[in-house]
Computed example of a mutant assay.
Amino acid sequence: MKVEFWSDLTCPWCGLGSHRLDKAVQRFAHGGDIEVFHRSFPLDPGLSSSPAVSTRQMLKQKYGMDDAQAEAATRRVEVLAEREGLQPYVVLDNKKANTQLAHEFLAHATARGMHRQAWQLSFRAYFGEVRSLFDVDALLELSDELGLDRDETRQALTDRRFRQQVQDEARRARELGARGAPFLVIDGQYAIPGAQDTDTLLGAFQQVWDATHPPLAHTSVEDADGICCPDGCALPGDDAAGG
């Protein structure tokens, strides 16, 4: 079963949603048969990459929120995240800037076999450690932590080698009906918007699994030879049961 999860690195509900997705996969009975693919969906492509602005300031400018509204809009997700084990989880007292280059870094890391690790590290660095993700030097620090080649990473970011890939992933999300992030799609046809809780994701996984893995039909056959019993399994015509 293929699960695609579109998100932006500075979206607080995306970081929480990614955590919930990991938990759902771990708890699902067939979690070992689920492949999770993180996809890029930068939400503010028009935002400047420098200087970074405070989240409080961005909420005021973009949505016209006052201080009380900004507090209410962000503290809720902070509390939810911390209740689910993400401590600390800093939203209001963080900073915002254009995430395009950060997503290109993630594409580079994915190409080098560090897909899941790079996404997890980036969310943790931003929300858990209040680190910048917005310039080459900051992203090279993440590259070092992942054990990637620093010069190769710098070249990929300088050349903007993965810019088109990031844009294509965001366009694909919009084609599938995404109007925001996070946005999850199972097997290319079952869409789930928003940071759904773990139980909801588990229910969706089970529903899709049942639809794509129908149980085998069994016929009722009495006194059939060669049927296993508690003492072992006997071949037809054998008097003794064997393992």
Rank of each mutant, 00 (worst) to 15 (best):
G85S: 06
T55S: 09
A118C: 09
L80W: 04
Q155F: 00
S48G: 12
P193H: 13
E104G: 12
C229N: 09
T74A: 13
D225R: 14
D33Y: 10
R116P: 00
I34Q: 14
L16R: 10
A217K: 12
F183W: 00
D168V: 05
E129Y: 00
R179A: 12
H19I: 09
R76W: 03
F105P: 02
E71T: 15
L43A: 12
D225H: 15
D197S: 12
D66E: 08
G226E: 01
A181W: 00
S18T: 03
A241N: 09
G237Q: 11
E175F: 11
V208Y: 06
L201F: 07
H19L: 11
A170V: 07
L21Y: 12
R160K: 08
D93N: 10
R76T: 08
F127K: 13
E169M: 08
H38E: 04
D168A: 14
E82D: 01
G32I: 06
A195S: 13
R179L: 12
F127L: 05
Q207D: 06
V221M: 10
A70E: 01
I227F: 04
Q57A: 14
A97H: 05
K23T: 09
T74V: 10
D137G: 06
A24W: 04
D149H: 05
V25D: 14
D199A: 15
L80Y: 06
G85T: 00
E104R: 01
A72H: 13
E35D: 14
A234R: 14
A156D: 01
G113L: 02
P51I: 12
D137P: 02
C233T: 13
R163F: 00
H30L: 10
G64R: 01
I34V: 14
E78L: 12
D210M: 05
G128Y: 04
S143C: 00
L148Q: 02
Q164K: 15
A217E: 01
L235P: 04
A234L: 04
D238T: 14
T198M: 08
Q87R: 10
R20M: 07
D210Q: 13
G237V: 14
E84M: 06
L176A: 15
D199N: 10
S132E: 00
E152F: 01
S40M: 05
V166G: 03
A111T: 03
D22Q: 14
H218C: 07
T219N: 10
K2S: 03
D197Y: 01
G85M: 03
S122L: 02
F134V: 11
R160S: 10
E4G: 08
D66V: 15
E222Q: 15
D149T: 01
V53K: 15
I192A: 10
A211C: 03
R116E: 02
G203A: 10
T74L: 14
L16G: 07
F127H: 11
S7M: 08
F205C: 09
G64M: 12
E104P: 09
A97D: 02
A73M: 08
P45N: 11
